[in-house]
Lab assay of single mutants.
Amino acid sequence: HMTFVALYDYVASGETDLSFKKGERLQIVNNTEGDWALAHSLTTGRTGYIPSNYVAPSD
């Protein structure tokens, strides 16, 4: 899985969403939902949907 870094803070709007903080590292599990991606946080160990425009690929 590619690793991504959060560009902004995001507060989950539902139970299936994943909250994260700017700078948090995430792995995209499934990116077939258009503007949303299923992601796993390497920081918190949690998995949920995130807005895909809130993250960018990290080196």
Rank of each mutant, 00 (worst) to 15 (best):
residue 5 V to C: 08
residue 21 K to H: 08
residue 39 A to I: 05
residue 34 G to L: 07
residue 52 S to I: 15
residue 20 F to H: 01
residue 45 G to L: 06
residue 5 V to E: 06
residue 46 R to E: 07
residue 4 F to Q: 03
residue 39 A to F: 05
residue 17 D to P: 03
residue 9 D to S: 07
residue 49 Y to T: 05
residue 7 L to P: 05
residue 18 L to M: 14
residue 37 A to W: 15
residue 24 E to I: 01
residue 43 T to R: 08
residue 40 H to V: 15
residue 7 L to C: 11
residue 56 A to Q: 11
residue 32 T to K: 10
residue 54 Y to V: 06
residue 56 A to D: 06
residue 45 G to N: 07
residue 54 Y to R: 06
residue 27 Q to G: 03
residue 35 D to L: 11
residue 25 R to K: 12
residue 4 F to S: 04
residue 22 K to D: 01
residue 33 E to H: 13
residue 48 G to D: 01
residue 59 D to W: 13
residue 49 Y to H: 06
residue 28 I to G: 01
residue 35 D to M: 12
residue 37 A to L: 15
residue 25 R to E: 09
residue 55 V to F: 10
residue 44 T to S: 09
residue 28 I to F: 08
residue 26 L to W: 02
residue 9 D to W: 03
residue 43 T to S: 10
residue 4 F to I: 05
residue 37 A to D: 03
residue 45 G to S: 04
residue 35 D to H: 12
residue 30 N to P: 07
residue 5 V to L: 08
residue 49 Y to N: 05
residue 37 A to Q: 11
residue 58 S to E: 15
residue 16 T to Y: 15
residue 10 Y to G: 01
residue 49 Y to W: 15
residue 1 H to L: 13
residue 44 T to Y: 02
residue 11 V to E: 12
residue 43 T to Y: 06
residue 45 G to C: 08
residue 48 G to S: 04
residue 31 N to Q: 13
residue 12 A to H: 04
residue 8 Y to L: 08
residue 40 H to C: 14
residue 4 F to V: 14
residue 48 G to L: 03
residue 28 I to P: 01
residue 29 V to Q: 08
residue 12 A to P: 06
residue 49 Y to A: 03
residue 3 T to A: 07
residue 43 T to L: 09
residue 9 D to P: 04
residue 2 M to Y: 12
residue 27 Q to I: 15
residue 45 G to Y: 04
residue 42 L to G: 02
residue 41 S to V: 02
residue 58 S to D: 14
residue 2 M to T: 10
residue 20 F to P: 00
residue 46 R to M: 10
residue 7 L to Y: 03
residue 48 G to V: 02
residue 3 T to N: 07
residue 54 Y to A: 12
residue 32 T to F: 14
residue 36 W to T: 05
residue 22 K to C: 07
residue 50 I to N: 00
residue 58 S to P: 10
residue 53 N to V: 09
residue 58 S to R: 07
residue 4 F to G: 03
residue 8 Y to M: 10
residue 49 Y to I: 07
residue 33 E to P: 10
residue 31 N to P: 12
residue 43 T to A: 10
residue 31 N to Y: 15
residue 52 S to H: 08
residue 7 L to I: 08
residue 4 F to Y: 13
residue 13 S to M: 13
residue 47 T to I: 10
residue 55 V to G: 05
residue 35 D to C: 13
residue 56 A to V: 14
residue 20 F to W: 02
residue 1 H to G: 14
residue 53 N to Y: 11
residue 52 S to L: 15
residue 56 A to S: 10
residue 38 L to I: 06
residue 32 T to V: 14
residue 58 S to K: 08
residue 50 I to D: 00
residue 13 S to D: 08
residue 11 V to L: 08
residue 1 H to V: 13
residue 16 T to I: 08
residue 44 T to W: 01
residue 38 L to G: 00
residue 44 T to N: 04
residue 39 A to Y: 06
residue 17 D to N: 10
residue 50 I to H: 00
residue 41 S to H: 06
residue 57 P to A: 11
residue 18 L to E: 02
residue 22 K to Y: 04
residue 41 S to I: 02
residue 26 L to R: 00
residue 40 H to D: 01
residue 46 R to S: 06
residue 25 R to W: 13
residue 31 N to R: 13
residue 57 P to R: 10
residue 10 Y to S: 01
residue 18 L to R: 02
residue 13 S to P: 09
residue 10 Y to A: 01
residue 52 S to C: 15
residue 29 V to P: 06
residue 13 S to T: 14
residue 47 T to K: 08
residue 28 I to W: 04
residue 55 V to C: 07
residue 23 G to T: 01
residue 36 W to H: 05
residue 34 G to V: 06
residue 6 A to T: 07
residue 7 L to A: 06
residue 13 S to Y: 10
residue 8 Y to R: 09
residue 15 E to V: 11
residue 4 F to D: 00
residue 27 Q to V: 15
residue 20 F to R: 15
residue 44 T to V: 01
residue 8 Y to K: 07
residue 58 S to H: 12
residue 59 D to E: 12
residue 15 E to M: 10
residue 22 K to N: 02
residue 11 V to A: 08
residue 17 D to W: 11
residue 19 S to N: 05
residue 40 H to T: 15
residue 9 D to Y: 02
residue 56 A to R: 11
residue 39 A to H: 00
residue 34 G to S: 09
residue 4 F to M: 10
residue 47 T to N: 06
residue 4 F to L: 07
residue 19 S to W: 04
residue 6 A to I: 04
residue 28 I to H: 01
residue 29 V to F: 13
residue 10 Y to R: 04
residue 9 D to L: 07
residue 3 T to G: 06
residue 1 H to N: 12
residue 21 K to N: 07
residue 47 T to V: 09
residue 14 G to Q: 10
residue 40 H to W: 08
residue 33 E to C: 15
residue 4 F to R: 04
residue 35 D to Q: 12
residue 40 H to F: 13
residue 3 T to I: 15
residue 1 H to T: 12
residue 2 M to C: 14
residue 32 T to I: 14
residue 22 K to I: 06
residue 44 T to E: 03
residue 54 Y to E: 02
residue 58 S to Y: 14
residue 5 V to S: 04
residue 16 T to F: 15
residue 6 A to G: 04
residue 55 V to T: 05
residue 24 E to H: 04
residue 24 E to K: 00
residue 38 L to N: 02
residue 53 N to T: 10
residue 11 V to P: 04
residue 36 W to Q: 04
residue 57 P to H: 10
residue 23 G to V: 01
residue 52 S to G: 06
residue 54 Y to K: 05
residue 54 Y to Q: 05
residue 38 L to D: 00
residue 56 A to T: 13
residue 3 T to K: 05
residue 44 T to F: 02
residue 57 P to Y: 12
residue 38 L to H: 04
residue 32 T to C: 15
residue 35 D to Y: 13
residue 3 T to Y: 13
residue 44 T to I: 01
residue 27 Q to Y: 14
residue 59 D to T: 11
residue 5 V to P: 01
residue 45 G to E: 03
residue 6 A to N: 01
residue 8 Y to F: 12
residue 17 D to A: 09
residue 1 H to C: 15
residue 20 F to V: 09
residue 9 D to H: 03
residue 1 H to R: 11
residue 20 F to Q: 00
residue 25 R to V: 15
residue 29 V to L: 15
residue 51 P to N: 05
residue 50 I to M: 03
residue 59 D to R: 10
residue 23 G to H: 03
residue 11 V to R: 07
residue 48 G to H: 02
residue 32 T to L: 15
residue 32 T to R: 10
residue 46 R to N: 08
residue 26 L to Y: 01
residue 52 S to P: 09
residue 3 T to M: 11
residue 9 D to C: 06
residue 56 A to L: 10
residue 49 Y to D: 01
residue 9 D to M: 03
residue 5 V to I: 14
residue 47 T to H: 07
residue 29 V to W: 14
residue 21 K to P: 00
residue 26 L to G: 00
residue 38 L to E: 03
residue 17 D to R: 11
residue 47 T to C: 13
residue 54 Y to W: 07
residue 15 E to T: 11
residue 42 L to M: 08
residue 22 K to V: 07
residue 17 D to E: 15
residue 33 E to L: 14
residue 1 H to K: 11
residue 55 V to Q: 04
residue 17 D to C: 15
residue 17 D to T: 08
residue 37 A to M: 15
residue 14 G to C: 15
residue 48 G to T: 01
